[in-house]
């Protein structure tokens, strides 16, 4: 199903979506653009390259309450936080990020245990993908082509949006997407010419070139196991790393979390929140022993997890080449270059 709306009517569409439930869309902050829950339709912008933070927070918030409790003199009362996600929409997800949700699904839903927190929000959310503008060159840090994703890939989106000179075109990709498109009366039906334009634009998106190298999941997974013990290589590649968590927190496919009980006087909450394998205390054991005390060991873990262990366990690389880790790295460490040089060893 193809629908369209004039560019200047974006506000109407946003208002219509807000009526359906919480809407997350790109908003311009002081410097960077980021997804935010929209309260004022005029805040939504579509002129952006990509957001600083990934949209994973919509299903996997940085901090999430699991249990609330009260410590009593004799007994502790506790209550699980109920799952009550409202049907929501994320508007303007770039193709690489849309793909990341599918990769995360394998971990949160496909590993034999279904994560109820992820599942609840995932099921109730409709994702409106948004093609990269084919007339803009890809950011030098991006490498989504390498992971087999194009600038106008529809995989992972429920609805896919493409901008033309005067219109926004919407194509339903999944049933959930079609259903939402039908309900939105502000949209006009697309004509045959619009369909042609959509196809043309989508094709053009395929021509956007990011950094590219030939990689095969299995081969790179095997290679990394091979170079695992090459201490010299890892130390050199990660010599600049300062072991902060910026790369993992902006990453759309990093899913590690920590759980902690936080009590204030007698009331407390058991929470789960993002953790980063780059932190010194990530693997610190109660005995005081730390299996990964060195920075290169932690960085190696990150690379091998994404490009090797994840392939073995879930059958795909856990990276979409969005370039966020490289862009946000305070010292410009580039995972692409590391994979490239590891493959050449």
């Amino acid at each position: 199903m193809l629908k369209k709306i004039a560019l200047e009517k974006l506000g109407d569409l946003v208002s219509a979506l807000m009526e359906k439930g919480p809407l997350y869309a790109p908003v311009k902050g002081e410097k960077a653009v980021d997804f935010q829950e929209i309260t004022n339709p005029a805040d939504v912008i579509l002129d952006f390259y990509n957001t600083a933070m990934s949209p994973k927070f919509a299903f996997f918030p940085q901090s999430e309450d699991l249990i609330r409790y009260r410590l009593g003199k004799e007994a502790t009362e506790s209550e699980a936080v109920s799952l009550d996600a409202k049907p929501s929409v994320i508007l303007g997800v770039r193709p690489c990020d849309a793909k990341s949700f599918e990769i995360m699904d394998r971990h949160f839903l496909g590993a034999g245990i279904i994560d109820p927190y992820w599942n609840d929000k995932r099921e109730k959310t409709t994702i409106i993908g948004y093609a990269f503008d084919p007339s803009t060159a890809a950011d030098p840090a991006d490498f989504y082509n390498t992971l087999g994703i194009s600038a106008s890939d529809t995989a992972g989106s429920d609805i896919f949006m493409i901008r033309t000179d005067k219109h926004l075109l919407f194509k339903g990709i999944t049933e959930k997407g079609d259903r939402l498109l039908k309900e939105l009366s502000v949209l006009e039906a697309g004509s045959k010419t619009d369909e042609k334009t959509f196809e043309d634009k989508a094709k053009k998106g395929g021509e956007v070139k990011t950094r590219f190298m030939e990689i095969q999941d299995k081969a790179v997974a095997g290679k990394l196991v091979q170079v695992f013990n090459n201490k010299e290589f890892w130390e050199k590649a990660t010599a600049a790393c300062i072991s902060c968590g910026a790369c993992t927190f902006v990453c759309p496919t990093c899913y590690c979390f920590d759980i902690s009980d936080e009590t204030l006087f007698r009331d407390g909450v058991r929470k789960r929140f993002w953790d980063a394998c780059m932190f010194t205390d990530f693997t610190l054991e109660a005995s005081g022993h730390n299996p990964r005390p060195r920075i290169f060991q932690r960085y190696r873990q990150k690379v091998c997890h994404k490009y090797s262990y994840h392939v073995d366990k879930y059958g795909c690389i856990s990276c979409v080449g969005c370039g966020r880790c490289t862009r946000s790295c305070p010292v410009n460490i580039d995972i692409y270059s590391i994979i490239e040089s590891a493959s050449k060893l």
Binding site: C244, G245, F279, T280, P330
Partner: peptide, 18 residues
């Protein structure tokens, strides 16, 4: 703040462990 600790890690004067 997202508590990535990039500020303290990039800082030349933040060397405390832990």
């Amino acid at each position: 703040c997202i508590r990535c600790f990039a500020c303290r890690k990039a800082c030349p004067m933040c060397y405390c462990d832990p």
